[in-house]
Design a binder for these strands. Structure first.
Lengths: 293, 293
DNA sequence: TAGTTTACCTGACTCAAGTCAGATAATTCT
DNA sequence: AGAATTATCTGACTTGAGTCAGGTAAACTA
């Protein structure tokens, strides 16, 4: 690993916690413990269930309860029984609580503004652009690719989005039923596998493989959500699927793709796949690739 | 102010404290209170005077003392009388303390590495580049331009660097004495003024003005340290000097510049200065500018 | 040389943050 | 119906972080 990159990251983290970290401390500035301020902020104008608050803020139930009593005593929050379940409760901001919430909001805006204010318009654009880039790439770095079952609701959501996109992009349209001998039951180990890429728990991509014979795996269903493209998610999924194929005994991985999926073709070439002759009768395939593991 | 920029900054700060903030919490991971860990880290392999530690970490003297006793008890730190002054003391890491310091260092590296690891080489470059840009522009945003006396040691250091640079850049060389009727005593209010731009307390630029008659101010000594160029420091100093000029009753601000200082000329034009006829006999001046306030 | 200042230390405190072991009431399971 | 589970609450605790009011010895100042 490039050492100068590590040094830059450490330096960045120091600089940001020093300069932008002040933004967090602004919560403190309204004469309230940080914990209560965060809680007030997290409850928000719409209110929130106590369970959700506990898990989002990572609080002990006793601790949460005590802080809520304190906020109630300050007249900022009311806790009401609501749902069908009379055990679970919901915290809501009172009138005064909403005003307080708005004040924190204004403070945060003000602090963000104080960062922009000294800069020229051009420098502001550059700063905001670079922040967006950092945020996006930090998100990319926290994407995890894991083997999962293909029949869960989330897997199905990925596949639906994948099929919708194919229908939109293929010149000839796309009908999932047509000439498609593969089903999700092919993606169950050890005859196949299914991976999902997740960002903060939410699926942002999927990919599948099935063994077409003892030494050959076929990659299918490679899809990345539009919001996560350009971050290397596809190649990470591909590498994961190749590793799984190898563990199933595959010596070769092959796949097909449509002429309209240009990015996919260049990805496969970049990852060491060579174009080969047609090896199946998929009516939507125009190019066929293979790679020896 | 552009609201989408403020939203981006707030979103950035949330993302960064969540993802990189973990880097700070790594200090906690060695089963030691954060305060002690920070202190250990700040003492560093070379050791540090207690006064320096107090000011750098912003600690109460009693608090520091207690933490040092605790680190001593753990065998990580020794505190010795050293300098001439037998009251002041110096904290040094023991052998064990240095090992602990190195362990924190390795932990930070590891965390930085864990951010890079999932990314492709191209994405790493982009992330690190964007981090450098953010860091640089956050620094720029924290630069403060203030009116100060021109005869302090720091002001003199700025001017020395300014003159050295002129000597390097002017084709004809530069001799501060030659044809230079202006001295620092001209930069004392209300006949003149001097501003210094500081980043974290360190001077990174200066500029001066003197009134050449009741309604005309002249800008002199505009200089920005190479490390702080391209961040809009010069235009901020210029605006500050114009505001001061106006408060002294000036209706017009004028200045001269050498043909080799291209950035300066474009800055003045950008800021609304028009080129005018020669108004002084400065042998190093090739262009003359003026702006009505 | 006596008084003041400085650099550090000690003890006694406060307050925030968080943990843990039950208690209580509603709900679900058998 | 009775037992187990769940969502929340209460009380008793620990630990960290930090403040404040002195105290001591060395160094400076008039």
């Amino acid at each position: 690993m490039d050492n100068s990159q590590i040094i830059q990251i450490r330096s960045f983290s120091r600089a940001v916690t020093r300069r932008v970290g002040a933004l967090d401390e602004s919560y403190l500035r309204r004469g309230r413990p940080l914990g209560e301020a965060r809680l007030l902020f997290e409850i928000g104008p719409e209110g929130a269930g106590l369970g959700a608050l506990r898990s989002r803020l990572g609080l002990d139930s006793g601790y949460l309860s005590r802080m809520l009593r304190s906020l109630e005593a300050q007249g900022l929050v009311s806790v009401e029984k609501l749902d069908g379940d009379a055990r679970s409760r919901r915290a809501m901001l009172t009138e005064k609580g909403r005003a307080e919430h708005a004040a924190y909001d204004a403070l945060s805006d003000e602090l963000a503004n104080s960062i922009l204010e000294p800069l020229s318009a051009a420098a502001r654009d550059r700063l905001v652009g670079a922040m967006a880039e950092v945020e996006r790439l930090l998100a990319a770095a926290s994407i995890a690719v894991e083997e999962e079952a293909a029949d869960t609701e989330e897997a199905q959501q990925c596949l639906t989005q994948y099929f919708n996109e194919l229908a939109e992009r293929f010149e000839e349209g796309f009908d999932p039923g047509k000439g498609n001998a593969t089903t999700e039951s092919d993606f169950i180990p050890p005859r196949g596998s299914f991976v999902i890429a997740r960002l903060d728990g939410n699926p942002v991509g999927c990919g599948a493989l099935r063994m077409i014979d003892a030494e050959t795996a076929e990659i299918k269903r490679m899809w990345v959500a539009p919001s996560a493209r350009g971050l290397g998610v596809a190649s990470r999924m591909l590498r994961k699927l190749e590793a799984i194929s190898a563990s199933f005994g595959a010596k070769t991985v092959c796949l097909d793709t449509n002429r309209s999926l240009k990015e996919a073709q260049s990805l496969y070439k970049r990852q060491g796949y060579d174009e080969i002759a047609r090896f199946n009768d998929n009516p939507y395939a125009d190019h066929w690739f293979a790679k020896r593991l």
